[in-house]
Design a binder for these strands. Structure first.
Lengths: 113, 113
DNA sequence: TTTATACTGAACCACATGGTTCAGTATCGC
DNA sequence: GCGATACTGAACCATGTGGTTCAGTATAAA
């Protein structure tokens, strides 16, 4: 039986439940970025934006490196795997897509080599 | 580009962010059950339990069929796939575990045949 | 018909979220 | 050193969550 870290799943799934935070993750997937540069794209105050960043940090999804007055944000995607694993338990329930999934991972593996 | 239904991901990931609701999902994965029977296992009032059920319903993860005074709950796992698909976008970021994942699905497929 | 069962709803509480503004601090560039 | 830049924190607000209790309704069973 796979072990799931409940507290991690709690925080991570809560963290990804807001479109702004998913957008931040999406942005950081392309590489680290300055907090202000990321914030710019969002129609809210910097303070509001920072709250989202803090939620992501607490979930372990974002790491912050401070250099002088600048904060660089980097994606730390590992915790996403906990939620994914939990969800994949139920994969067989929503469809008989095992074939396609297997194919998908085989292809990904090929591409990454 | 895959289309993600933002509102669905919002509600579903929020719904699975509480251990009680994940436990309900786990329970219902074995088959439909009466509301009270499921509720029994949880150390909270029936009213409190019902609130969790309502959150799951709003996320489209649980369906309720009323027969007389009894509510039968059934898992409706399809919406889980939206969150899973969103997460799998980032799968390649968190590790080079593609081999193991592929193996996992191959084995699952074997077992289910 | 009475009583027990299976919820349902309203009201309340404490706390978190998602946003704001405004004021403060720390650092960088000139 | 001065001003601009890049945050940070406190305070506030409305709303949602996660729980409670208590009272009510509807149905099934005796």
């Amino acid at each position: 039986m796979v072990q799931y870290r409940a507290a991690t799943i709690d925080r991570v799934s809560a963290a990804i439940s807001h479109p702004t935070r998913r957008a931040i993750i999406h942005r950081l997937a392309h590489g680290p970025a300055r907090l202000s540069d990321v914030a710019e794209r969002f129609p809210m105050s910097l303070t509001g934006f920072c709250k989202h960043v803090r939620v992501l940090e607490r979930a372990g999804l974002v790491r912050r490196t401070r250099r002088g007055r600048e904060n660089t944000l980097a994606l730390s995607p590992q915790p996403l795997s906990d939620v994914t694993r939990w969800l994949l338990q139920y994969e067989r329930f929503w469809t008989a897509r095992l074939d396609r999934m297997q194919e998908y991972f085989a292809k990904q593996k090929e591409n990454s080599q």
